[in-house]
Design a protein around this nucleic acid. Structure first.
Lengths: 147, 147
DNA sequence: ATAGATGCAAATGTTTTGCAGGAAA
DNA sequence: TTTCCTGCAAAACATTTGCATCTAT
């Protein structure tokens, strides 16, 4: 186990909340951190099983909820309805390819400004937002033309 | 049953696809059209039951899928994971109050333009998008201050 | 008469919960 | 040794499917 910032953050969160550091929690965090992008509970469970065979689905769910509470992970719900987790980081939005499933992250100051105006117009107080663009990625467009 | 545009659209869709016009389908469409905003399957089922007591959940689901295929309804998945249906109309986005559940629709040309730029930058072809702002509505803010 | 629709019950897929045994503090 | 965790099995949801029956055409 590498001793990353996230590992330390988890340890201190656990300590602060009188929770225990277990091999399962470490293994799940390890696998989760090794993922580049977004991972489903199922895929996470499979990968954790490779290094920690007897781990249960339940523990994966419970631990991911814990990581979310600790601010290390966040849940994403794209249009297919399956929950995915990603590493909590600077806010960004997503471009999703509906053919191959590729997910690209983007950020746009202009849109954030426009959002603020809208929120003001309706008198809301903004807590968070989600903005997803669905389409075909360059590779899939090539593939389409190739046929 | 009123003979709205949507009723006629459904009738012609059914005819075109060799499907049958049934009392259940009419009842579901009637209730669905009477809703101002977004409705869950459960709420739709309850309301349809009031005017057509023996209708099954299954039929509600199947009919809503049919209405979506016919272009009269569309599915929405907000962050709570429960499917909601809305009347298919000009594209718009949503402001959602996370305290009381109120949903307000908005539209913003500036954002649409910014989106087009992003899509071009990554070489995607845009099919659709979703943009949701989550926060507290004015009423809930008042309530908060009142405490 | 026939294709298609319905409603029930059962299956599905995902996530949650109860609980007895097991491990960290 | 006490508190918290785990893994299993079962429950809980939302949604879908199989099937015998019914109905629109």
């Amino acid at each position: 186990m590498s001793n990353s910032l996230e590992q330390k953050a988890l340890a201190s969160y656990l300590e602060d909340h009188n929770l225990k550091q277990t091999r399962q929690r470490e293994a799940i965090l390890d696998v989760f951190l090794s993922i580049k992008g977004h991972i489903t509970s199922e895929s996470l469970h499979q990968q954790v099983r490779d290094i920690h065979p007897n781990i249960g689905y339940t523990t994966v769910y419970r631990t991911m909820k814990l990581l979310c509470d600790a601010g290390l992970a966040s849940e994403r719900h794209f249009d297919d309805g399956i929950t995915r987790y990603e590493i909590e980081q600077e806010h960004h939005d997503h471009l999703v390819c509906v053919r191959c499933g590729k997910i690209v992250e983007f950020e746009c100051k202009m849109i954030e400004q426009a959002q603020d105006e809208i929120v003001q117009r309706y008198g809301f107080r903004l807590l968070r937002h989600r903005h997803e663009l669905y389409g075909h990625c360059p590779d899939c467009q090539k593939r389409e033309r190739g046929r």
